[in-house]
Amino acid sequence: MNPRFIFETFLKLLPYLTVTLEYVSLSLLFGTLLGFLAAAAKLGRNRPLRWLANAYTTILRCTPSVVLLFLVFFILPAVMRNYLRINVDAWPALFFVVVTFTLFLGASQSEVMRGAYLAVDRGQFEAGVSVGMTEWQSFRRVVLPQAFFFALPNLTNTVIYLFKEGSLAFTIGVVDIMGKAYLVNATNFGLKALDVYLALALIYWPLSVFFEWLGRLLERRFGYTQVKPEAGKTAESVRGRGRSSIRGVRA
């Protein structure tokens, strides 16, 4: 192990972090939007849409990410060329990485959001419309902030997962930090593999810890629903919070 070499490699890899962060942020953005739509479809009344969203989730969840990446990388260009007459040969490989992880996140995020939505008692939404808000206002002002809070732990998980899992991008030739590490290793004929990948880990570790910290920070910021009852108060004071009004069991 050569600390000096590790440090030099670390500096060499660092600029490629922008590539990593690029596909992480783009996939997160589009994946969350897709997940939102899929969650809405699953919770909605339209049966074909619900079926479609569920099928999409099942298929995506059952496909290994590297398999999906290859499928997207090799099949998507053919589909686009033959059916849409768009030639994507010159498009950057990064595009296919973003498509892959958008599809992946869409599936997992839709489940995260569905769970978070269901965790907010529907009664609060009803109370919102009862005081004269529209359904959208009641959703946005009352349900959404609380659902976001319930989704946060999973969301943090997703970001860290994506950050690490994205390293698969090098398999289709994207030079992110992983891809660069692979190249540096090859230039040294694999003789300094330990040092190279240690340098790489030194980028992954602190950043993952940073994302964890960010998640906890947001949880504190949005943690108003978790205010503990004051000392001396009984559980009575938190009762309104549970899913106490399950539909159909009312008098």
Binding site: G123, Q124, G128
Partner: peptide, 9 residues
């Protein structure tokens, strides 16, 4: 409401 249904946030 029976369960108050206050906006918890």
């Amino acid at each position: 409401f029976q369960n108050y249904n206050l906006f918890n946030n």
